[in-house]
Amino acid sequence: MNIRLCLPVLLACLSMAVLPVAVFGNEASASFPVDLVPQLRQIHQLEGSFEQTRHISVLSLPLRSSGQFTYRQEEGIVWRTLEPVASTVRISPEQGVVIVDDSGNQQPVAASELIGGIFLGIFSADFSRLNDYFAIEKQPVDTAHDSRHWRLQLTPLQAGLADHLQAVEIRGAELVEAITLREANGDRTEIVFKADKIVGKPD
């Protein structure tokens, strides 16, 4: 080899990612058991509205917001917050999470792969991409009035992630209806979805 080429080797090792490993590192779990929620519809396209409530421990009042979303399998999610502030976020497997400003400029959100992956998994009803990060467990629900309902609890597999995120809860029937993210410091975010237009995957 070019003898001095050994040095880039050494430095390449150094410049590689230590942090995301530390932030999001975990053990992969077994495959997600699809039959846990057989009633969940596979979605090709979805449009609707959402209501989000965020409880932050150091703020006396919860932060409520609402807006609209669209999901297309090829393009990902466009998340438009309309009240009380206006903002647009795009989430796609290729580009990750980007914030779009009023002029259409896109600002990538660093290290947002995990949360972007959760959203894409929920909207596409494909939880398999979450298996790398969470243990997924079905929780009992009160099915007296509707046996189609289900509830899943996602628990971080690795301590580093658990230091930040305690659990994710997903509820739904044919579609995902709500998610709750519980952070380790006590903060909590609840998002409730209401679907207006649904296009299922072709058989």
Binding site: A17, P20, V23, F24, N26, I56, A111, D132, N185
Partner: peptide
């Protein structure tokens, strides 16, 4: 956390120190 660093100065600073880090998926095998 937001309570200790509401303007996320720490997160922005650490990403500037390790700009390549955000490119990796942090699974057991990054």
């Amino acid at each position: 956390p937001f309570a200790d660093d509401p303007f996320n100065l720490g997160g922005a600073w650490l990403q500037s120190v390790f700009p390549e880090a955000a490119r990796f998926r942090g699974t057991d095998i990054p």
